[in-house]
Design a protein around this nucleic acid. Sequence first.
DNA 1: GCCTGATTTCTACCA
DNA 2: ACTGGTAGAAATCAGGCG
Length: 779
Amino acid sequence: MKVTFWLLDINYEVKDHSPEVWLWGIEEEGRRILLVDRRFRPYFYLVLKEGAESEAVKGEIDRMRQDLPLIENLEPASMKFFGRPVQAIRVTCGDPDLLARYADKLGKLTGVEASLEGDIRFSMRYLIDNGIMPCGWHEVEAEEVTDDSVKQIEKVCIVDSPPRPVERPQPPSFRILGFTLTPYGRMGTPKPDSDPVVIISAATNEGDEVQFAAEGENDAPLIENFNEFVRGFDPDIIVGYGSNQGHWPYLLARAGKHDIKLSVDRAGGEPHTSVYGHVSVTGRANIDLYDFADEFQDVKVKTLENIADFLGVMKLGDRTIIEDVDVPSYWEEKNRRPILLKFGRENLRSIMGVADAALDFAFQLSSLVGLPVDHIGTAAAGFRVDWFLIRQAHGVGELIPGRREQPYFPYEGGLVLTPKPGMHENVAALDFKSMYPSIMIAKNISPDTYVPPQEDVPPSKVNVAPEVGHRFRKEPPGFYKEVLTRLIRTRDEVRKRMRTLEPGSFEYRLLDARQRAVKVITNATYGYAGWLGARWYLKPVAEATAAWGRETIRNTMEMARQIGLEVIYGDTDSIFIVYDPEKVEALSKKVQEEIGLEMKPDKIYTRILFTEAKKRYCGLLPDGRLDIVGLEVIRGDWANAAKGVQETVLGILLRERSPEKAAEFVRGYVSGLRERKVPYRDLIIWKTLTKPIDEYKVKAAHVEAAKILKERGWGLTIGDKVGFVITKGSGKLYEKAKPYNFATYDDIDLDYYVENQVKPAALRILEQFGVTENDLVPN
DNA sequence: GCCTGATTTCTACCA
DNA sequence: ACTGGTAGAAATCAGGCG
């Protein structure tokens, strides 16, 4: 019987050294289905040394068979490795969990140059070899069977033939569950060992909203209730915020305390932490929206409430925020408990709203890269590119390189010009359309086209990178060139189709998510090529790309000058020039003809202000908005007081061109600040802990604040943002830093905020106009 | 021991 | 746990000072 399904999750089981692949999906008719494939075997490749005989190596392997009894098959294979044809033996081994060990052992044989692909996880192997994409539709021949095990699924089938992808206009309708916990700890950050969960809030995309409350401090019943609720609703997708590192592990630990099995998956098991640190709920897609918070670059402190506020899902002004440590005071008081429950519901609504904004992208990224949607969020950018490339390589018979330990040597990157300081009228920022990918395509830069220095190749056959001298064959097209060309073409096609659709329509949204996913992978490829962890790492690739980039921007500036355009600034792939439409048009044309890359105006500024610093400027756009780049205003580690003042100063200067008025404003603000009129929250400074507290070499304000938090029971880890204020006292700054929630307005060192926050931020700009520190002293 | 300028450490940004 | 280039604050070091 033919089954059409949308792939939600995949896992595998090993029974008596024999693997089964389980594909969890949703049928077109909406039934939830499990497809079991018992026909697939894991394997790896042994690449033979030059001149080594396949039969001889087979003989070597045969002599080891008693040690490696699960070898099922040895098959010669003609493959490519970095574009070079190689002879290999494909070794099939029955048990996927032993594959890596077998691959290592056989890699040491005399006739073997390399053992490859033994590190590809079995479920990924299955997807790749069959061309199956998570979050996509497939057809398969399968027989329905009756399944009497504990699986929570409507239909179980045994697969007869490999599934193949098919096109369908839209995904099935999902059942989505959102959840959040309220843990209760009287000693700082709650610890699952001692502190119960007092509320579990859950909602479904069908409009149900429930809250389970603990009985006193006994959370056993609410865990049971949650268990039941999840099973009853049977979600396809589970969303949370911070659920991978926070809620799931906490809930599991609490369930463990009570000997309750948290059986919320579809296979009768429990959630478990798996690759890249995601929590896997078998048969469902567990998605932690926090893993997609990076998509919202404008939000500096990535809390759920800030992201929900940014998206307009739930405004900060309209909601309650209760810190973990304050939970007891709400929970214990009868009349305050409803506020705590309300806080839970608000978080839940935020989660559902953020899910609405982020899930399309997650699905598209998953189906582009080929990683299951529950892994894709936790996989770092480098691994996303890695898996994308693995798919592409497999498609063209390329062997997948392993990761290798290697030393790090830095190389020179993009070119940054010193700006012409001051105010400029009518300036255009021109930039190259995906410069690095375009260069990699144009120069055929790739690990497989690289010609090492000792190799003799006629100069006419290679492109030679400026400054660094690396050579790349012009033909045939390299791996990166092929891949990037396809990506760019795909994105162009998607965007073309979008233009025929109503923005806001279902398909438009889907395609927009698609093109964003393609863009993310395209833009990460250059950085990936220079990343030590990349399977296709080759320093000369990244180094040559950057060198050609510098040459490109230098040549472009020279052309601009020849045409009579004044260059004010430039950074990596952009130049800022005084705008003259005709000359700019001429420049684009010339660049296209002589360099072969596409360059166009990105933004036109009515007026733009540079200081002498690179990477920091502010422009006024025709619609009246300020475009602020690099300055304190858009940094997350300055007090709002300073950021706000700087933004206002920029506004006055660029819109009204009045340094006097700006200085007057600053004086007024400083007076107000000294009179304690600035809200406390505008004095908080946020900084990230980038390493464990005891690894810091110098004493720093945010680290000292973090230590205080830790003493009081806060659990802080790498990546956490610490909010602190500077309090009165003597000595070093770090001695005066206190967590914002452990200080009051009376403790604040207002002088610090005037002298080290507001004034420097304002003067950074106002100095350009001859305004001095004295001019900012209130009369 | 204190002052000062140079250097290091740290974070967050730009492309 | 994608790259290098950069600004800026604060801590810390190193040397001058009889």
